[in-house]
Nucleic acid binder design. Sequence first.
DNA 1: GTGAAAGCGCTAACAC
DNA 2: GTGTTAGCGCTTTCAC
Lengths: 331, 331
Amino acid sequence: MAATIRDVAQASGVHVSTVSRTFSAPHLVNTETRNRVLAAAEDLGYRPNRAARALTTGRTHNLGLIVADIANPFFSHLIKGAQAHARTRDYHVFVADTDEDPQVEEELIQTLAKQVDGVLLCSPRLSNRVIEKLREDVPFVVVNRRMKGMSNVLMDVGSGAREAIGHLVSLGHRRIALLAGPAGSWTSREITDAAHAVPGIDLTVFGPNSPTEHGGLALAEAVASADVTGVLAYNDLMAIGLVEGLTALGVEVPGRVSVVGIDDIVAGRVSRPKLTTVAMPAEAAGRTAVDLLLQLVGAGETATPALATLATNLIIRDSTGPVRRELRTDP
Amino acid sequence: MAATIRDVAQASGVHVSTVSRTFSAPHLVNTETRNRVLAAAEDLGYRPNRAARALTTGRTHNLGLIVADIANPFFSHLIKGAQAHARTRDYHVFVADTDEDPQVEEELIQTLAKQVDGVLLCSPRLSNRVIEKLREDVPFVVVNRRMKGMSNVLMDVGSGAREAIGHLVSLGHRRIALLAGPAGSWTSREITDAAHAVPGIDLTVFGPNSPTEHGGLALAEAVASADVTGVLAYNDLMAIGLVEGLTALGVEVPGRVSVVGIDDIVAGRVSRPKLTTVAMPAEAAGRTAVDLLLQLVGAGETATPALATLATNLIIRDSTGPVRRELRTDP
DNA sequence: GTGAAAGCGCTAACAC
DNA sequence: GTGTTAGCGCTTTCAC
């Protein structure tokens, strides 16, 4: 067993409380004594046990981070940002993956609640009602879902979607398909609402869908036989899957159908045609979310929820092009 | 504050120890009593505090998982596999990212050591010596590094590299470049050794390099001006970056240079030309590593280190092709 | 089968 | 500036 505070106390000839103080409130202890304690600690390889500390302080210095799919590049970047930032504030982070299952999501939050000072809930699939309830157990920051009275980190995906569709429209597209994301996704709803609000287009919504390459692939036939010339997908993974499927069916992209994704993952940049997409600042979102969460945790009961909205922007590449003359609807 | 074991005891009219037993050794308590306790617990929303439990049992039911770069798809799949598997065994996992910095790696292990029952060290950049020392603090499973006396999960990347080079040779390539990975990487060493052992080729090694798209991109000029027709890269990210760079320089892939990656990430499958690569079973490695680690943790002092070797396999796609007649070295 | 009591490693009043 | 003491939530002998 590793050295405890008691070993250090004994070795340096002081009481345990003095040792405790040298670590948690160094200014309260005599320089000389402190040095002696530090030396002994160093010597014994002593490291404070955070779990034991948590028991008395009520602060674990741990954060929970819950995402739908760790392997999705959007989330892995978010995790990276959150983790790196948390580390600079001396926090460790538990990462958990719900596999898109709301049930798992709820369970995870509950078991994690006791071991963390707060949780980052990313793109939840849970209902607002359940989240409100869970909130009594542990402070939250919710990423990619607008929830009144809670701290939120949002990406302005609605305006991203508008930009994307505007881009399609400017290329002459009028009959547009929207590939929705999973049920329960706020982002998917935002995109859908934004798309519906664009005037002068004829919108067909497919979904809900699995937000994966496979989900996109599975829609290829439906899209090919639908009477559309432009597509906006819930994310790049789906867009990539769709392009694969379309290509396999002999439907040219962007020759016959233009495709826009959302996220800006590496795969989209290197796929052919290079994917036009709405860039989402995933890593920044992770950092910001940690900031808001720590702010919440620090403030305790008096905490005021904050709202951060991050900009998105359209990146035009090669998967979108002008609508073919013979497919055009209006002059 | 949430309900504690004491609240449940009071509510169900038994002593705390009985409540404790209903959760940790249910068979030792009368069915009727147990039901009463369970009902009260349910009612109060009681959940055992794992940190407090850890203090007495010495088991935190937490695992640490340390990788070089969370956003690298190879690692994110590994994390996904490990996390999912850990969850089925009622373990939570801390994920941490070293950003390829050995210093950070060491520090991370030390601070994590006290809060976890064991750590999964993936593709460490630390020296064997330091790892051996750290091992006294906490049980390890090391992924992608052969270390005597410790549990290891290895991928047979040496044979993968041999296969890849064999494939290049069969296409007529003789002058081959190897893009090494970061310093301290066992995998990089294995690949290099395997490549050096292939007879009849003329090998040029570039590196060490940053194992990222950017790292590959940065090598494009050097590769273009080197007298080689085939390339094996440390990973797909580098291979993709290299292909980008080469293409920008007007060097055709696979027309003038054939490129093979390692990992089999999505981006490689969708990039053009589709990347020939050595598939690495990242998710399975994560699961296996958790198994070995839990085995180690369960066995305590008497633990016998285990070794798991996972197969890799070459996936031939479009980034490799026959060497051009005029570039051929021998008949 | 259940209760009593000690203690895990640490912090936080409160004395001195 | 440092020691004393109680206690965080839980498990684990040991009695009964």
